[in-house]
């Protein structure tokens, strides 16, 4: 009975302490807990995803052999291009030096695998990646694919990081229309229950909307939207999507532009986190 009372008091004190932890300490505690679970998450991911991939690889062995040959060809071409580009880079650096230009910013991509979708609560539209601060990933870094912007890192632990997707209503991106140069703020619009929603939450997202676009701009369907670089989180020029629908906001002061995101987030398996190149 005495033990029981001790345990009750301990848990109650722990809850009070937990609720009153300062934010930096709370973030550190969360990171440690995430790291403890990251291993089990990876095991699950390995069991479920990699096994199914292995079976499908056996099923389509002939196709994969052909693909391998094609990839060899592509690698050879890309290696040749890299040699050319390195030469251009050297030339570029030399010319910049001669013209006394400010050093161009150096960005690097960290390849990460998506290990889970939606977090434990399901209130936010997030994905979890299998890499964290140990690989140089930091909070508030842009997350991209080969096609375009996906979201931003919000919580980074040692071996995992959480990404807030463009679809989430808490995600805001300063962006620009490439053709006209007009600026706006893109905001996620959450998920939809209208029409024919998919079973999984992340597959049923509403199109994000670019707000505060000036009314005197001549925008047309399919206009490309890229990050403007304002605000400092996202590097400029990352493709976000293309214009789908134009309307006026409630006060009829600005345009609200519905965007078709460049990346289809239904099948995200690998993404890149943008980080600054270490010296």
């Amino acid at each position: 009975m005495r033990n029981n009372r001790g345990l009750i008091s301990f848990v109650l004190v722990a809850v009070v302490v937990l609720l009153n932890l300062p934010l930096p300490v709370s973030m550190r505690v969360k990171s440690s807990a995430r790291d403890s679970v990251a291993g089990y998450q990876n095991v699950w991911h390995l069991l479920v995803n990699d096994l199914s991939r292995t079976f499908s690889a056996f099923a389509g062995a002939k196709k994969h052999i052909n693909q391998k040959d094609e990839l060899f060809q592509q690698v050879a071409n890309l290696e040749f291009r890299i040699v050319q580009l390195e030469r251009f880079e050297e030339q570029n650096a030399e010319l910049r030096k001669q013209l006394d230009f400010r050093k161009a910013s150096k960005l690097e991509l960290v390849l990460c695998e998506v290990v889970s979708r939606g977090g434990a609560g399901g209130w936010w539209q997030t994905i979890t990646l299998n890499k964290g601060s140990e690989d140089g990933i930091e909070q508030n870094r842009a997350v991209v694919t080969r096609v375009g912007l996906v979201g931003t890192t919000i919580n980074v632990a040692k071996n995992s990081s959480e990404v807030l997707l463009l679809y989430d209503s808490n995600c805001q991106v300063a962006c620009r229309f490439s053709r006209t140069g007009s600026l706006g703020i893109l905001r996620g619009a959450g998920m939809t229950l209208r029409g024919n929603p998919e079973m999984e939450m992340l597959l049923s997202a509403n199109s994000p909307v670019v707000n505060y676009v000036r009314r005197d701009q001549q925008l047309i369907d399919g206009d490309e939207v890229v990050t403007s670089g304002l605000g400092g989180v996202y590097p400029p020029g990352l493709l976000v999507g293309s214009m789908k629908k134009l309307s006026l906001d409630a006060k009829e002061l600005y345009y609200c532009v519905e965007i078709d995101p460049a990346e289809d987030m239904r099948e995200l398996q690998y993404v890149f986190v943008v980080k600054e190149k270490s010296k």
Partner: peptide, 8 residues
């Protein structure tokens, strides 16, 4: 810890 819900 494994969601964005504040700790506690």
């Amino acid at each position: 810890s494994l969601s964005e819900i504040p700790l506690g």
